[in-house]
Design a protein around this nucleic acid. Sequence first.
DNA 1: TTGCGTGCAAAGGTTTTGCATGGCA
DNA 2: TGCCATGCAAAACCTTTGCACGCAA
Lengths: 142, 142
Amino acid sequence: MSNGGYKTRQREAILDYLIDHKDSHVTVNSISDHLEKDGVRVGVTTIYRHLDKLLEQGLVRKYTVDGTTSACFQYASSDVSCHEHYHLKCEKCGKLIHLHCDHASEMCRHIFDEHGFMIDLYRTVFYGICKQCKERKDNEEE
Amino acid sequence: MSNGGYKTRQREAILDYLIDHKDSHVTVNSISDHLEKDGVRVGVTTIYRHLDKLLEQGLVRKYTVDGTTSACFQYASSDVSCHEHYHLKCEKCGKLIHLHCDHASEMCRHIFDEHGFMIDLYRTVFYGICKQCKERKDNEEE
DNA sequence: TTGCGTGCAAAGGTTTTGCATGGCA
DNA sequence: TGCCATGCAAAACCTTTGCACGCAA
């Protein structure tokens, strides 16, 4: 395996689950629950340990979403280009949007040149409300 | 008192501490520890309860910094302009920088107009390395 | 005096650690 | 066979809640 680890039933199941849900975030509990429903029992200890490793390898992203007490994780392909675009996290639906936009590198340059701060776009997440959720909300309020 | 609460020794101590450290974040533990050193014992329960109230009133900001397990708080004068500037968090020294910059509102407008995503700048924190830490790091590497 | 404020103890939840066992290579 | 992986139990934390007592107004 590319990371030196063994290929085990548990590792496979966790990775599969993460990839299946790459469009939203998951928690240790949601992983544990869903795997159990699928007939694959995996101890939470194991899940924590795998997520830690994946985090180090940059294969998952870790957040804390407002109002939740446990950490959220989301699969992130180790794509180098993730350093060159925005990550928008919708606080309503949990979707993570990779927004390719020239504005990104320009903004980073501006902040570095003018203010001396070097932004790490890979680690930075913009919180807000996505288009769909905004429209839904606007409709409800009518 | 403007918020209807009583004026107590504990409340004063917590607020003073928050205001003294308005340039960086604090945790419930750091508050408790520092107050104790100053000879003011305040139970953590009380600290949590006051922070909750201050949060509701918008007088403190709450977030979780990557790698920490406990919540971080920072005094925020009920300044509306906190919605109009960047928050830069240095991953080395932990400093939170409030960067007033015209770029901020411009960028938000761009992302909303062009991509439909409404950023909540108040909640968004840019991670990266601040000027001082970057210089220190560059020097060490020589 | 009244009712909020305080702090202890206990509960609830998440995450980590120690250790014996299991299983990949 | 040699290690790493796993999972249980326990520990370590962080945060919240219940309750009796303290104290501001």
